[in-house]
């Protein structure tokens, strides 16, 4: 693998990680902790939204984020012929 390709591959990876971790941060620390009181004024059925994010929603989003990363990276590996 060429040096320049290695750099590009790594940069794209870092970009994916940065985007996904921002979402990770927003749903847990943002919705579940910092803005929990504001979100609690919104209700979905019996759930206050902030409470729901802290005890349910953040966990669902975490799981989805990992599978999204798996997909993105498998595609990226294929593009650079890095599947082992």
């Amino acid at each position: 693998m060429k040096k320049s390709d290695q750099k590009k591959y790594w940069k794209t990876n870092l970009k994916y990680v940065a985007i996904l971790l921002s979402i990770w941060f927003v749903v847990s620390y943002g919705f579940g902790i910092v803005f929990v009181d504001e979100l609690n004024s919104i209700r979905i059925g019996g759930f206050k939204l902030g409470f729901w994010f802290a005890q349910q929603g953040s966990i669902y989003v975490f799981t989805i984020l990992i599978f999204v990363y798996v997909r993105l990276m498998n595609k990226l590996d294929a593009k650079y012929n890095l599947e082992s």
Binding site: L20, W24, F51, S58
Partner: peptide, 12 residues
């Protein structure tokens, strides 16, 4: 909630 988020968010 600290345990719910804390013990799952680490997997990300």
């Amino acid at each position: 909630s600290v345990y719910l988020m804390g013990w799952t968010g680490g997997y990300v």
